[in-house]
């Protein structure tokens, strides 16, 4: 089992303790506070994930053979979502990131954020992180 899968299982187990949506959202809001923040110089127009409502910036850099993500958003719930994604994908080899599935989002009751019309663009965030993985994988090769 990959390390990414282990982290996802850990998150699913963590969320299984919550009894209702409020506790889940409160947890996400907490998670948002621990988000590894993007450096101001990387908060550029180019690094904005295009979504309709909240702004999301994601930056990636290679540390030896692992990809390290930093990010930010102007919305708190969105920050929590990115924090979860970063926990799963950051400090992992690009090849593992590319191969990973993201079914855990469904399992922790955040399925509504997966809809392509959803303004936070969770799908776009995952896509952007995988695009970074492709780019850096090419570099590693």
């Amino acid at each position: 089992m990959s390390k990414i899968q282990d982290i996802q299982d850990e998150i699913v187990a963590e969320f299984s303790f919550f009894e209702d949506w409020m506790q889940r959202y409160e947890h996400m809001i907490e998670l948002g506070k621990s988000l590894p923040l993007i450096q101001p110089k990387h908060k550029t127009e180019d690094n904005i994930i295009k979504g309709c409502q909240s702004k999301v910036w994601i930056h990636a850099a290679l540390d030896k053979d692992q990809l390290v993500f930093t990010a930010d958003s102007d919305a708190i719930i969105t920050k929590g979502i990115i924090a979860l994604l970063i926990r799963v994908f950051s400090h992992q080899p690009p090849a593992e990131i590319l191969a990973a599935d993201t079914s855990f989002i469904d399992e922790i009751g955040l399925k509504e954020h997966l809809s392509p019309t959803r303004a936070n663009g969770l799908l776009s965030m995952i896509k952007q992180m995988k695009l970074y993985a492709i780019a850096f994988q090419t570099q590693l090769n």
């Binding site: 409502q53 102007d74 919305a75 708190i76 969105t78 509504e112």
Partner: peptide, 21 residues
Amino acid sequence: AIHPYDMGSILDKMGIAVRTG
């Protein structure tokens, strides 16, 4: 300073449909 998106998402969980953006 609450982002409209955050407010709208929480209201939605309570069955309240508003528009944000």
